[in-house]
Amino acid sequence: MKNQLKAMFTKAEFYMLTQYKVGKIYDMMMGETLQVYMYWCNMVWNRLSIPRRRFISWLVVQHRSQTTEKLARIGVSSSLACVICDQGDEIHKHLFSECPYIKISLLETKSWFGITVATQSLNRLIVWIDRSKKSKFRKNVWHANIYAFVYSVWRCKNDSYWQDLITRPHFLTDNCKRVVKERIRVVLPTIMAR
């Protein structure tokens, strides 16, 4: 912990702090990860999402899904390269916000749902959805869309790694649309009956 604090501040910067508060320093050290944990419960209890998509999204937000970087560390993969675009190391940040292939699909998905935030970061997108002044139903639909998108990326990555198949970005978007529409049709009559 001490070394992390030294890496964040020089002695001069540390002494210039007007007040030292442990909570404030902890928030600075955690960055956006802490914010996502605070908003995660809103995504988990969303009835419009299919449980397997919730689970995969939970792994992704927690940075616990198996990327090729993690697989290489344990000896399963021989390469760190992204199996989808082959333009960078496959870490969570690359796979869900920097991969050019995934960026295209995310932009199409966001525009279809009318999500206007400019961020490409999955974590910031989750926080933006929860902070938006939209109805609970619309937020749940957006969360279901994020689940469908993350699950589609996960499936695309696995298909690329295990079967050497790469799905078109437009197919990912179309799949998200189809899944969310079907789930709303299944769940909505139950919600309306209450």
Results as ranks from 00 to 15, higher is better:
M1K: 11
N3W: 11
N3L: 07
L5I: 15
M8L: 13
F9W: 15
T10R: 05
E13S: 06
F14Q: 04
M16W: 09
L17S: 09
T18L: 05
V22T: 15
K24H: 12
K24R: 13
D27I: 10
M30C: 13
G31I: 09
E32I: 08
E32H: 07
L34M: 12
L34W: 03
Q35F: 01
V36R: 08
W40P: 03
N42C: 09
W45Q: 15
N46L: 02
L48Q: 02
S49G: 04
R52Y: 12
F55T: 14
I56S: 05
I56Q: 07
W58D: 15
W58G: 10
L59P: 03
V60S: 01
V60H: 02
V61N: 08
V61K: 01
Q62N: 15
H63K: 13
S65P: 09
Q66V: 11
T68Q: 08
E69C: 12
E69L: 07
G75H: 02
G75A: 06
V76A: 07
V76W: 05
A81P: 02
I84P: 01
I91C: 12
H92A: 07
K93D: 07
K93M: 05
F96E: 10
S97C: 09
E98T: 10
Y101G: 02
I102M: 03
I104A: 07
L107E: 15
E108S: 03
K110I: 07
K110P: 09
K110H: 02
G114A: 04
I115T: 00
T119W: 04
T119V: 00
Q120I: 09
L122Y: 02
N123R: 08
N123L: 09
R124F: 11
I126N: 05
V127R: 04
K134N: 14
K136P: 00
F137E: 05
R138G: 02
R138L: 10
K139D: 06
N140A: 04
W142C: 01
A144N: 03
N145F: 05
A148S: 11
F149K: 01
F149G: 01
V150Q: 00
Y151S: 03
V153K: 00
V153Y: 00
Y161M: 10
D164R: 10
L165A: 06
I166H: 02
I166T: 10
T167D: 03
P169S: 02
F171S: 09
T173Q: 00
C176A: 03
I184T: 08
V186Y: 07
V186G: 04
V187D: 00
V187A: 01
L188N: 09
P189W: 06
M192H: 08
M192N: 13
